[in-house]
Simulated scan of single mutants.
Amino acid sequence: MVTVAMIAQHFEATIKDHPKMKLREIQRRCVSKMHVTVTIDCSYRVKKIMKEKMARNYKEEFGLLRNYAHELRSNMPGSTIKMVVQRVTVDSLPHFKRYYVCFNALKRG
């Protein structure tokens, strides 16, 4: 028996590359690639699982950027490190916009 998690794992790279893939397309690919007929509801759950997984990955990577900036500041004094984030509303999570690094050695020439 094929589970939703198995289908999500099988199509992980495809859905990451095409996050706006239609549910009917997921359904069609399940039939052609896995030889399994799934419902639209199952396709919806597969897509939902992948969106949640991608959101977790983005949060983890965003946290790593902050840690990287902190390490650069503490280990390379005089360097300029700027990270710009944007919030849609005051209560929303920050969205990464840009990252700037200029090492002190480059400033001195």
Rank of each mutant, 00 (worst) to 15 (best):
L23A: 12
V4D: 14
S43C: 15
Q9K: 07
Y58S: 12
L65R: 04
V90A: 08
S92Q: 01
M76T: 12
G63P: 05
V46R: 00
S74W: 01
C102D: 04
R28W: 06
Y99H: 05
M54A: 13
Q86Y: 02
K20C: 15
K82Q: 08
M50V: 15
R56D: 14
L93G: 02
Y68L: 15
V31M: 13
E52N: 08
F103N: 15
K59D: 10
I15W: 04
A8N: 06
V101P: 00
Y68D: 10
A13T: 13
E71M: 12
K20W: 07
A8P: 08
S92V: 12
Y99R: 03
V85F: 01
R28A: 11
K16I: 06
M1S: 11
Q27H: 13
L23F: 10
L23D: 06
K22W: 00
R24W: 00
C102W: 00
P77V: 09
D41I: 02
K59W: 03
K97M: 06
I26R: 01
K33T: 12
Q9L: 06
I81L: 06
A55W: 03
I81T: 05
A13F: 00
E25A: 15
Y100Q: 04
R98M: 04
E71D: 08
I81P: 03
L93K: 06
H10G: 08
Q27G: 12
N104Y: 13
T37I: 09
L72F: 00
R98D: 05
H70W: 11
T3A: 05
I7L: 10
K51D: 08
Y44K: 06
T14P: 01
E71G: 00
V90R: 05
M1P: 04
Q9S: 08
I15A: 10
K47P: 09
S79E: 09
K97W: 03
T3L: 03
Q86P: 06
P94V: 01
V2G: 01
E60R: 09
K51F: 02
N57H: 07
E52I: 00
A55T: 07
I49F: 03
A5C: 07
N104V: 15
V90C: 07
R73C: 09
R98Y: 00
R66M: 06
K22F: 08
S32E: 14
F103V: 15
N67S: 13
L72S: 04
R108W: 02
V38M: 07
A55L: 03
R108Q: 11
M6V: 04
A13N: 11
H95Y: 02
M21H: 06
K59T: 10
S74N: 07
L23T: 08
M21S: 13
S79Y: 00
R73G: 04
P19I: 03
H35W: 07
E60K: 10
K48M: 04
N57Q: 11
V84F: 01
I26Q: 08
F103M: 13
T3W: 01
S74R: 14
K59N: 09
C102P: 00
E61H: 13
R56V: 10
V46A: 10
V85S: 12
A13I: 10
Q86F: 05
H70R: 15
R29A: 02
K20E: 14
H95F: 02
M76A: 13
A5H: 09
M83L: 02
M1A: 12
A69M: 01
H35I: 11
K59E: 11
V4K: 13
A5Q: 13
K22M: 14
H95A: 11
Y100D: 03
R24S: 14
T89R: 05
L23N: 12
T80I: 06
V85K: 02
